[in-house]
């Protein structure tokens, strides 16, 4: 075990280190006319500075709060809608096609409209993020509600489950893997939308405005700090989501 560990650690850190070296080399040699392009050390110093001054943590928390609020709203709307679409054939026929058309609208196309309809403040952003999460969550809950195999459907009939028992003991548990998958995609989408909302809609504290101020000040190091943190936060969110999801569907 330990014998294999060292090469493995080496392999995992190879590309990050190589990229860092390349980056350092390019900036140090001054080959390019990318005079503005900061060296790695500069970026890390900047990151550290922004972190210690409290700017970065504050922006991160603001973005996360916005992201999770929108995600929660999208899930609260999407799970019941998706389940109802799948559980009630009548409702599915009536509302399904409309939802299917709605989901074709590229999420960013809503930005100009939402800004106008929901004001310039926080609510427009949260509604936008919620919409981004809502679509995959609904799609998956809808599929999940139809996921109970015919064989188990028959088992519930033979065991004479009441409609309520059928829902609680069979249909919903069978839908859970899809719901979890939808929530995971929804969380990723919400994060994309959070950045989009902060970037395109009104200025508000958050990682998006870190990027914007970096761009406006021609502070490339600040922009890079923002990109770095955005990616890492996305990884963290996705990891947490997939761990929690796995716990929920341990029976699989």
């Amino acid at each position: 075990m330990t014998a294999g560990l060292a090469p493995r650690v080496l392999r995992f850190s190879l590309l990050p280190l190589a990229l860092l070296a390349l980056w350092q080399g390019v900036t140090a040699a001054g080959w390019t006319d990318l005079r503005e392009f900061p060296a790695p050390a500069t970026v890390f110093a900047r990151a550290l500075g922004e972190w210690q001054s409290g700017v970065l943590p504050e922006a991160l928390l603001a973005s996360l709060a916005r992201d999770l609020a929108g995600f929660a709203l999208g899930a609260a709307a999407g799970i019941p809608l998706g389940l109802t679409l799948g559980l009630s054939p009548w409702f599915g026929r009536l509302v399904g096609p409309t939802f299917d058309s709605f989901k074709q609208i590229a999420i960013f196309a809503w930005i100009p409209l939402f800004g106008l309809w929901f004001g310039m403040g926080e609510s427009a952003k949260v509604v936008f993020i919620a919409t981004a999460a809502f679509v995959p969550i609904t799609v998956n809950a809808w599929a999940g509600a139809r996921a109970l195999p015919q064989t188990l459907e028959e088992a519930t009939a033979v065991l004479r489950f009441s409609p309520w028992q059928r829902l609680i003991w069979a249909r919903l548990p069978a839908a859970l893997p899809d719901i979890v998958a939808g929530l995971r995609v929804g969380l990723i989408n919400a994060w994309l939308a959070t950045v989009g909302a902060e970037y395109f809609m009104s200025v508000a504290p958050g990682l998006g405005s870190v990027l914007i101020s970096g761009r406006d000040l021609y502070a490339m190091d600040l922009v890079l700090v923002g990109v770095l943190v955005l990616g890492l936060t996305g990884v963290a969110l996705d990891t947490v989501a997939s761990r929690l999801g796995a716990i929920l569907i341990r029976w699989q």
């Binding site: 493995r8 392999r11 995992f12 850190s13 190879l14 590309l15 990050p16 990229l19 990318l34 503005e36 392009f37 990723i188 994060w191 994309l192 950045v195 989009g196 970037y199 998006g208 990027l211 914007i212 970096g214 761009r215 021609y218 490339m220 922009v223 890079l224 923002g226 990109v227 955005l230 990616g231 890492l232 936060t233 996305g234 990884v235 996705d238």
Partner: peptide, 28 residues
């Protein structure tokens, strides 16, 4: 081996929202 080498950077890059690259690329 390639997958183990690429993955650390790839997983991070995958989670960077494309739009977040805009300010960087505008400068470049």
């Amino acid at each position: 081996a390639a997958s183990e080498i690429i993955e650390p950077v790839f997983v991070w890059f995958a989670q960077v929202p494309p739009i977040a690259l805009a300010p960087l690329l505008i400068l470049l």
